[in-house]
Structure formats: C-alpha cells, structure tokens
Amino acid sequence: MKNKKFRSNLITYGIVIAAFVIVQALQNAGRLSSLMTGMLVPICVYVVLAVSLNLVVGISGELSLGHAGFMCAGAFSGALFTNIVKENLTIGPLRLVLAMLIGSAVAALFGLAIGIPVLRLKGDYLAIVTLAFGEIIKNVMNIFFIGQDSNGFHFSTKDQFSLNMEPGGKVLLSGPMGITGTPKDATFLAGVILILVTLFVVLNLMDSRTGRAIMAIRDNRIAAESIGLNIMKHKLLAFTVSAALAGAAGSLYAHNLATLQAKKFDYNFSILALVFVVLGGIGNIRGSVIAAIVLTALPEMLRGLSNYRMLIYSVILIAMMLFTWAPRVLEWRERHFGRFLGKKIKEVE
C-alpha cells in the first residue's frame, strides 16, 4: 500500500523531470522554436495552477471557479516586491524566490479571508460565489495606483496624478496599465522547481492525517462529522494551501511578462485551469500535470496546420475526456497499466 503510493508519486515526479531533461536537450541542440521557448514558463505556471486547483476540486471536492483571482493576488504582490527591491537586490534567483514566497503568502491570506465565508456554501452556490470573488480581486487590482518616492509609498484609486508624488518618484502600479518593468527573473528551471515543490506539497498532504480528513469530508460529510472531524477547518486548509500555490504560480507568471495587467486574470483563466483538472481526471494529480502540458503546448505546436488547428484541438479534448472518464477505457487502462499505476480497483465477491 505505502509502497504503491510511493511508486506512483515517484512516476509523477519522474514525468516532470524527464520532460525538463528532454526540453533542455532540445534547447541545447537548437531544435526548439522560439515560440516554444516562450511557452515554457507559462506551461509551468499552468501545471502548478492545475495541480493546486485539483487540491480543491478533486481532493477537497469543492467546485471553485475563482482560482485566477488568487493567482492575480500572487502575481501583483510578487511583482510589486520585485519592483521595489530591484535596485538594491540584483540577484535574480533570490529575488524570484522571495517574490514567490510573498506572492503565495498574500494569496494564502486572500484564500483564508474568502474561504471563511464562502466555504459554508456547497456545489453550484460555492462555484458562483468563488467566480465572483475571483472577478472582485481582478477588479480591485485594476483600479489601484501605487507610487514610491523619498517620502515612502503613495496609494490612490483614482489616477496617477492623485498619488501626489514629488518629481522623480516612480509609479509601481498604475491601475489598468498594470506593472511594467518587472525584471524577467522567471526561468524554465524555476518553473520546474516550483512544479516539483507543488507536487511535493500536494502529494504529501494527500497521504497524511490531514489529507485523509480532507478526503473523508469530501466522500461523506455526515460520516466525517460523526467520527469527530472538523469540517470547516479542513476545507479551509485545503482552500488556503491551494490559493498559496496559485499565488506562487502567479508570481512566477508576473516575472515572465513585460507588462502585468489585471485583466489577464479573468474568469476564462479560472475555467482554463478547471479544464485541465477535469480532463486530467478530478482528484488525479498526475493527470492534471499531463493535461496542462498537453493542452497548453498543443495549440502552439499545431499552428502549422492553420485552419485545422482548432478542429484537432477539440478532437484531442474529446479524446482526453474519454481517456480519463469512459468506463471501458478505465477498464482497459487498469488491465494494461494497473500494476504500474498502483491502483487496486479489484472487485471482491
């Protein structure tokens, strides 16, 4: 039992590391198009996003549609930090690590603050409210102006001139125009490390006392209560950890962009993350990783097929859906890969 879980987790880490090695080899051989090179960090961001959302949707069993909001909070706080310290702290990797930590801390606070009221809701109601909160975070970021001069920080929600800065002060965040001039600290390596950290946190959490409680509550809330599990505490924990990981991903994302604007983090972004989770298999962490990689890289790789691109993309969406959900396919997978996957879905009579 223990060994099987362990082996299954190793395969998941292995897939990520293998993908990293292959991409690095291709890059060194000059076989990677500039388009694909540009996609590497976003792919890492999407993978982290999908895995962290799966913690809420698959492991905790709550449909959340506001994931982009937490990513937005992480992106802006991380980018702000970097822009404040960029003159004094010139070591890129260190700056990025700090920015990701700050991004995840801020996103975790948002997760906690939003989770306390909304996790009392269930199902469709929770989905709608999280969708709304995601949009609220985006819109709040959209109206903020922050500047810095020798007197310290200036805030406004009106425009740049209302900041009342002395001449020479720099504008850090200018409302809908967002944050510009963030150094491009994000690298593919950083992205892969963030994926591995995310997998480490989520997979180890699942296989611990807390993770068991979270899944027990998902499977049967009334029974979970009857054996003394604190429902709210565990739901909130899953939600907050998920938000924190999305925040770190957002911070990484921000350090890959010349201009960071809040409007990027609209509900489409949350839906996209949900598509990765659903097509990869709800509750299946490895599936989320693969779905995020395939579904992000594919449209770009199919660019050469011009008009047929979207057609093929949709066919692949359907194929993935069948692969993860169709009972016959599941049976087939069990028969052929059961011993590698380490899942025992054997019927006993």
Partner: peptide, 26 residues
C-alpha cells in the same frame, strides 16, 4: 468514505487520537 482505501477509512476514525502537524506531514 468510498473513494478511500479500507485502511484509510479506519485511519480517518483514528484522527483525533494520533497527532502530528500538517507541516510535519508534508
């Protein structure tokens, strides 16, 4: 808890009698 193993069902019942923090679990 249908999607959990038989062992984990019982271990969930043991939750309040054995303690370690979430962090030390991760």
């Amino acid at each position: 808890f249908h999607q959990m193993s038989v062992l984990d069902n019982v271990k969930a019942g043991l939750h309040n009698h054995y303690h370690y923090s979430t962090m030390s679990g991760i």
